[in-house]
Design a protein around this nucleic acid. Sequence first.
RNA 1: GACCCAUUAGCUCAGUCGGUAGAGCACUUGACUUUUAAUCAAGGAGUCCGGCGUUCGAGUCGCCGAUGGGUCACCA
Length: 497
Amino acid sequence: MNETREESIMEENLTEILKVRREKLAKLRETGKDPFDITKFSPTHKSTTILNEFEFLEGQEVVIAGRIMTKRVMGKASFAHILDSSGQIQIFVQVNALGKEAYEDFKAMDIGDIIGVEGEVFKTKKGEISVKASEITLLSKSLQPLPEKWHGLKDTDLRYRQRHVDLIVNPDVRKTFIIRSKVIQGIRRYLDEKGFLEVDTPILHNTAGGASARPFITHHNTLDIDMYLRIALELHLKRLIVGGFDKVYEMGRIFRNEGMSVKHNPEFTMIELYQAYADYEDIMELTEDMISTVAKDVLGTTEIEYQGQPIDLTPPWNRMTMVEAVKKYTGVDFDSLKEEEVARALKEIGIEVDNPVTWGEALNIAFEERVEDKLVQPTFITDYPIEISPLAKKIKHDSRLTYRFEIFITGREFGNAYTELNDPIDQKERFIEQAKQRAEGDDEAHMMDEDFVSALEIGMPPTGGLGIGVDRLIMLLTDSYSIRDVILFPTMRQRDK
RNA sequence: GACCCAUUAGCUCAGUCGGUAGAGCACUUGACUUUUAAUCAAGGAGUCCGGCGUUCGAGUCGCCGAUGGGUCACCA
């Protein structure tokens, strides 16, 4: 190895390609053309506006700004494509139009640089709508090369860690996140029009409630207490129903300290809504109407495709009780089974359980193991066992079950809803039962929440509530395979050590 | 947490049987005034993810580790 070269690489720790760009910047600074001195630039048009309204804009002067994505220099004339927030447009650059010095400056610009271009809208010989540059301003120098124009950035690790690069070079990614934004807007618009009040409730909780999940724990220094990042929005929202708001919702980030997968990110976005004087039947209607409305608003249709499967979101959706669903897919009729018979019934359909299970637990296991992934078209599964539904009102004629439903599409759970339990005495007993399970080592069992019970004692009207995993809904509507593809910066391990 | 797969130039990828590292794009220099994966000529660019081992010799084989992906487990 050549020692001097090795030293210089150590010194700068830069590859040649990075050095060249830094040298170009240094030269610009020496000649008083530092792009980073510029504080403002005022484009008059977006690229797609020019493409869409060419017949009106042909021959007119426009100013655009964006990033150089391709560059083809052919002696005294050049072409380049500029990417702005709306898309790409070609520019045509000639030494005659620009002058010699400015043209040389342009030739020294790199793919990735951000420029402003003033010029006339025209169509090239080959028929591409373009801007004939009369002035080019370098607005920012890019010191790192972009990934290849043809294959883009494929390495998932780099795509998630450097999402900014992913967004520049992979147009579908940009599209996905635009749809994400529109879906969220659409949900808000729908609920606002229905008279729901959007609220913000705390993310730092003293007890982590509203779901069965392990929380993240953090610490408040001044109060010197451990706090939990919320695992659900539920309990505060119901306290607002107690407080007299009839219809509330919150769309926000929640945090669950659990495994990661194609369907799970540790932090994700949830919408929860509560409507006083409504039951879960009303909420089913609202759910199918809201999701189909948003799909139509954003995609223009309720008939979509997810990973090759056609999905029809048009209401009304299928409805089945959990008992009916298990009977349909396994032949086992839990309704007529006694508690001591359920373990044998599970065994008959090929499910072994280690610990003794209650009737409701067995029903839920049978459902999860043998039914869930069959529910491809939108389906409400209703009437969940009471043991796994500590916040839902029990069914009047069958105390084993609650007025609860979950939404299944593509074999996955999308949402959860109840006729809310508003009997404070029952609620307290349910929490006590959960606390017992917690003491027995189930760290996902619900925590006792005295503040919430106290709120119910003040009196909560009969209420229907709903929670929907927004990221999963966006996956469905953008045909994304992984939840990481709909979260801009998914949770990743620190790279250095 | 378990298992499987991947990691080679800035990016996308080849790399045979273990024998001193390759392509395209990008970059540099030159030619070129309507190109569009521009073209043509020349050139530069590597911690082969890291460590240890086997071997005369390791990108290649073995072990340990890192990061990512997938499957499963867990999971309103």
